[in-house]
Amino acid sequence: MLGYVVRRLLLAIFVLWGVATVVFIIVRMVPADPALLIAGQTATPEQVASLRQQMGLDRPLTAQYVQYLGQAVTGDFGNSYTHNVPAVYLIGQVLPNTALLAVLACTLAIVVSIPLGVLAALQVNRIGDRLVTTVSLIIQALPGFWIGVVMLLVFSRSLKWLPSAGLVGAQSLILPTIVLALPFIAILTRLTRSGLIEVNGEGYINTARAKGLGELTVVFPHAIRNALIPIVTVIGLQFGTLLGGAVVTETVFSFPGIGKLLVSSIQLRDYNVLQASVLVIAATFVIVNLLVDLLYAYIDPRVRLSK
């Protein structure tokens, strides 16, 4: 197990280095000059050059890259070009909001989807199953921004029950949580359903039924235990994605999260914030995946034995 953990950790570090390098190259390939953006339309070429020097953008790319990697290792990504405060400070302001949203969306998805998946599996090809699978498919097919806008119009504008933007209290979390959770619910419900249907024909399930156990006892814990393995993987992946910031949902609800910060840093070509945000998102995703892999290896010993 220790060897497996070390292997996975080394791979995670390699992935993060790869992300850091790709981000560095891409942001510098994108047209436009951050110094010009800050200096504005009225600036003379001399003023722009002076600002570029202040920002360290006049140095060779290799020197910038080495400095950037050094900063990344120490967690200091330099100051935001526009806000003039450390990039990590800006991320620290919004990351807890995104994390809270991710936890809530994940919890809601698990609480709703697993019972729905079980119900559908117990009613295979009957009305309940068809209803669940059809609704799941529809939800998965609908774009998140559309669902967000419709919910805004209904619950914020027409009914005036919930705030439409920002984070002004616990009620601000309700709509973004639901919008983020809905596609997740659809995936998990279908996965739970198919997982249960698959294990339903297994010998040990038939044995349990032959012993006279009730249907619910057969499902919990006998059937669900094996069906959970792929579900845990998907939950982990999805949670990592949510922690990385739901850019569209955060934009629709003007939610102060890392996704919105990332979009703004791209628009302003704020390299330091952009690089730091992408690395934080990548690190979060890698760490969550690492944890899922370790959990998976714990649940299923065959995983850690394979190279």
């Binding site: 504008r157 933007a165 002004v168 629709v252 003007s254």
Partner: peptide, 18 residues
Amino acid sequence: FSLITDTNAKITALANGQ
């Protein structure tokens, strides 16, 4: 100063008193 950028969300914020 609430820095809402989405037009729809702005109008909704006014409509619901936010």
